[in-house]
């Protein structure tokens, strides 16, 4: 590197790291890794403009910068606040943050149907993880929950709006990954809903990725709905020859059958390489895929409790780095 970028120092929960200017607090925390990473329900690194909406990633800035060490009066959204040199951030070490996060989780859950027992997302749901970590054991909400009709959007995708937390990720995916803007938010306030303008079906070749970006069970794969709990399936890295996408995917197997296909997610649940609808919905034969090996599902999902992984720890980037 010929151009020397002046790195800046940021401290999160007493751990210091040097990062490039313009980094957000969340991405600095992810560079440190481990426990200091705030949860993120709406932020998605590959989607421009995402973030700032769910307010679960709120952190306290105890010192704004080296030059101006005053604390910020309000909690800030770590996904959309850039770091300054000498910034001191408190995530889990701040009572205020934990309290606010608990509040946000409670508010997110008041209109959520809590139908995890029949929800296909259960086991790999960000909201489930978040509620487990930060939520209260019971709800104080005693009113009727918001309900919507289930909608088929396109041939393969089911929209169950009642479960939606309005993170806007699918809206950004539809806008940015595909060329057509058919997908948006209708109405406002707690009546707001994801819609495909008068229920137009989404028939873009990459639209299946909205299923992967959805943090909850609002958008589900109709080819997989109700077939199995995700933790009974075995995730395998697999590739195929595909002219439209990279062909790198994860196939979720029940015995010798491929139950579903998803893109590969990193440990924060973010897809780096989006896959096309063909790979996702139509290639359900073993002969379509070249299996590479078991998939390491990171972080707190129940899937990571899979036992075979210990025998074959092939994907351990953290260990390799150290």
């Amino acid at each position: 590197m010929s151009e020397q970028i002046q790195q800046i120092k940021v401290t999160i929960d007493d751990q210091t790291i040097m990062v490039d200017p313009g980094t957000t607090i969340l991405s600095a925390a992810r560079q440190i890794g481990g426990n200091v990473v705030p949860p993120a329900m709406c932020f998605y690194s590959s989607l421009k403009g995402s973030g700032g909406k769910c307010r679960t990633c709120l952190v306290e800035v105890a010192a704004g910068s080296e030059k101006d060490p005053r604390p910020m009066p309000k909690l800030v959204a770590s996904c959309s606040t850039t770091v300054m040199d000498g910034m001191i951030v408190k995530n889990k070490s701040s009572e205020r943050v934990l309290d606010a996060r608990k509040g946000v989780v409670e508010l997110l859950l008041i209109n959520h149907p809590l139908d995890c027992p029949v929800c296909d997302q259960a086991g790999e749901c960000s909201l489930q993880d978040l509620a487990f970590e930060h939520g209260a054991s019971h709800s104080r909400y005693e009113f009727e929950r918001r309900e919507f009709d289930k909608i088929d959007i396109g041939e393969y995708i089911k929209l169950h709006m009642t479960r939606c937390i309005l993170c806007y990720r699918c809206v950004y995916t539809a806008n940015q990954l595909t060329n057509k803007r058919e997908h948006g938010v209708l109405k406002r306030g707690d009546a707001a809903e994801i819609g495909t303008f008068i229920e137009n079906s989404l028939d873009n070749e990459f639209i299946g990725n909205v299923i992967d970006v959805c943090p909850v069970g609002a958008l589900t794969d109709k080819t997989f709905r109700f077939r199995s709990r995700v933790w009974y399936t075995k995730p395998m890295d697999a590739t195929c020859n595909c002219g439209k996408c990279s062909g790198n995917a994860v196939v979720w197997m029940i015995g010798d059958e491929i139950a579903r296909v998803t893109a590969r997610k990193d440990k924060y649940g973010e897809v780096k390489e989006f896959i096309c609808n063909d790979c996702r919905f139509n290639k359900k034969e073993l002969s379509d895929w070249k299996i590479e090996g078991p998939r390491h599902i990171d972080r707190h999902s129940v899937i990571s409790a899979n036992h075979y992984e210990k025998a074959a720890p092939i994907h351990t980037p953290l260990l390799n780095k150290a």
């Binding site: 307010r55 508010l107 008041i110 309005l166 306030g189 707690d190």
Partner: peptide, 21 residues
Amino acid sequence: YHHESCGQCSPCREGTGWMEK
């Protein structure tokens, strides 16, 4: 405020409705 919340961020979207009820 419940009627006018834009619904973008969760505390306001959910909280205003709850307070109203």
